[in-house]
């Protein structure tokens, strides 16, 4: 007797009691579990941590299966391709990046390459500020986005001690008129600055 002989509802209850990683593993066991997994409601929110995984097609199809409402990416190196796949995740509404690495200037234009009409908010938090021109260009490329922000923040206590003031660019779109406006704020910082 195999675990596959369990009724559909019971298989589903087993999956519900698993963590995200084990749930994804179970999905790859056979078609029976794959189908139960795929009938799950979309995931509310996922976090992608720093790691070795590569191959954007794998990520693209995984996101298509779980259709998260919100994705938080932390500590990964951002390439334009990765940005494109993440922002193209079906039904995605919020995309946040925290302390992700990128080249001299992040090319955010790829966020707009896979049009995603559900994407409403994108935010970057890290050591570096993305310039307002890039943010505004992206707002124009992705008409669904209503808020786009970039904020500098100390990563840990040591950084906090030496920290420069926190700086933030926020671009917003008026849903009524479609007008884009941006604001810049500066706050905090240690006594050394």
């Amino acid at each position: 007797m195999s675990v596959d002989t369990l009724p559909y509802d019971v298989q589903r209850m087993v999956l519900e009691r698993l963590d995200a990683h084990s749930r994804l593993t179970m999905r790859a066991v056979n078609k029976s579990w794959y189908n139960v997994f795929n009938d799950f409601p979309r995931w509310e929110s996922v976090r992608i941590e720093a790691g070795q995984a590569s191959g954007n097609e794998g990520l693209r199809s995984l996101l298509a299966a779980i259709r998260p409402r919100k994705i938080l990416v932390r500590g990964r190196v951002l390439t334009p391709e990765l940005l494109g796949v993440l922002s193209g995740s079906p039904l995605l509404e919020e995309l946040s990046f925290a302390f992700c690495g990128f080249g001299s200037e992040l090319d955010v234009s790829s966020l707009g390459t896979e049009r995603n009409s559900s994407l409403k908010k994108v935010s970057f938090v890290g050591n570096r500020l993305i310039n307002a021109d890039s943010l505004q260009a992206l707002m124009s490329a992705q008409p669904s986005i209503i808020e786009l922000s970039s904020r500098t923040e100390p990563k840990n206590a040591a950084e906090m001690f030496w920290a420069a003031p926190s700086r933030e660019w926020v671009c917003t779109r008026d849903p009524g008129t479609g007008t884009i406006s941006s604001s810049f704020t500066k706050s905090g910082g240690s006594a050394f600055h």
């Binding site: 995200a20 992608i48 941590e49 995984a53 794998g58």
Partner: peptide, 9 residues
Amino acid sequence: NWGSEMSQE
């Protein structure tokens, strides 16, 4: 591979 670096919040 991606799933192993992903957690459900």
